[in-house]
């Protein structure tokens, strides 16, 4: 066939030129309609490969007997789910996960707010202080955990020694449920408080200064300004911080895994979180079917909590 385009080689007939225009029109119509989807498609293609496929495959695994090495066994329906839900360790793990999440998230947001408020003032060497609060975030979680779990040693740990010097009884950081949760929450907070503070600081800087000037003329002190201007203005950012820390908190793994020498969440599962339970089933007992069932239950729990978050967000948005 000829390589030259119809337009240049031969005198075009009328119908032809009309058809050519029509095609380029079609193209540009497609461009308008399809292009936006093409532009955002990389995310969704990536998500399909790294998100949807594992999710679907995990669901497939969870309804089979499945050994880590032996691979797929018989189809068992929802037996794996029934087994996991009937196991007390699963409910203990659920309790631990929420407990560690609450003990870490609430003080974390409160402290971050306080730190951000201080950094928002006119300090000398502003950048130095702002980078300073981010330093713990730069430290690898593994390193944080190694240092903290040494400090939280039951018999010869730094903290119990200090308590002893003050004449107090040592705390069973590795034997008591609540104490172990506090210790792990401390590690989480050490790492994340500065990060959260910087996000809140960025939001605080966006609050128009006029509000503060006006309130100052009205005679409001720093504390009154903080509660009546800063906090209400931070609402959307606070919600973002709470949602992200919920998702992170429910998946907590590094800190409890490295908290003692065995990494299985303690002899009585004192600090065994859902992800640790999943790991013990999948890699300790090599039972992938049950581990996949736990993974799906965790997924459903996160969706549920996220829906609650959305509901709260909506009601707050309406309120303001």
């Amino acid at each position: 066939m000829s390589k030259s385009t119809p337009g240049t080689s031969a005198p075009p007939t009328k119908e032809r030129s009309v058809r050519r225009v029509a095609f380029s029109q079609t193209l540009s119509r497609w461009d308008v309609k399809i292009s936006p989807y093409l532009y955002i498609s990389p995310f969704f293609i990536l998500f399909a490969i790294t998100g949807m496929f594992p999710l679907a495959y995990t669901a497939w695994v969870s309804v089979h007997e499945w050994n880590l090495i032996g691979g797929q066994g018989d189809f068992v329906g929802f037996d794996n789910f029934a087994f996991v839900l009937s196991q007390p360790p699963f409910w203990i793990a659920l309790r631990n996960t929420f407990s560690i999440f609450l003990i870490s998230a609430v003080p974390q947001v409160a402290f971050a707010l306080l730190i951000a408020a201080v950094l928002d003032r006119n300090l000398r060497a502003k950048t130095f202080w702002r980078m300073g609060v981010l330093l713990p975030y730069v430290v690898a979680p593994v390193a944080v955990t190694l240092i903290f779990s040494n400090m939280f040693g039951d018999q010869y740990g730094l903290i119990n020694n200090l308590l002893g010097d003050l004449g107090l009884d040592p705390v069973g950081w590795h034997s008591d449920v609540v104490a172990s949760h506090i210790a792990i929450a401390t590690m989480v907070n050490f790492r994340w408080t500065g990060y959260t503070a910087l996000i809140l600081l960025a939001a605080m800087q966006a609050i128009p200064r006029d509000y503060y000037e006006a309130s100052m003329i009205d005679g409001a002190g720093i504390v009154r300004q903080f509660f009546s201007i800063t906090i209400p203005q931070l609402r959307p950012t606070l919600i973002f911080v709470i949602v992200t820390s919920t998702i992170g908190g429910l998946q907590i793994f590094d800190e409890p895994r490295l908290y003692d020498q065995y990494g299985q969440g303690g002899a009585s599962s004192q600090w065994m979180t859902i992800t640790i339970y999943l790991y013990n089933l999948g890699w300790g007992q090599l039972n992938f079917g049950r581990a996949a069932a736990v993974a799906w239950l965790l997924f459903l729990i996160i969706i549920l909590v996220s829906l609650i978050n959305v509901a709260i967000t909506r009601s707050i948005a309406k309120a303001s």
Binding site: N150, G153, D154, Q155, Y156, G157, H174, Q261, Y262
Partner: peptide, 18 residues
């Protein structure tokens, strides 16, 4: 000595005469 084997306390116990 109530030290979990391989724990930090246990390693400390190797040297401190626990």
């Amino acid at each position: 000595a109530n030290l979990g084997q391989w724990s930090d306390d246990w390693f400390a116990g190797l040297s401190n005469g626990a």
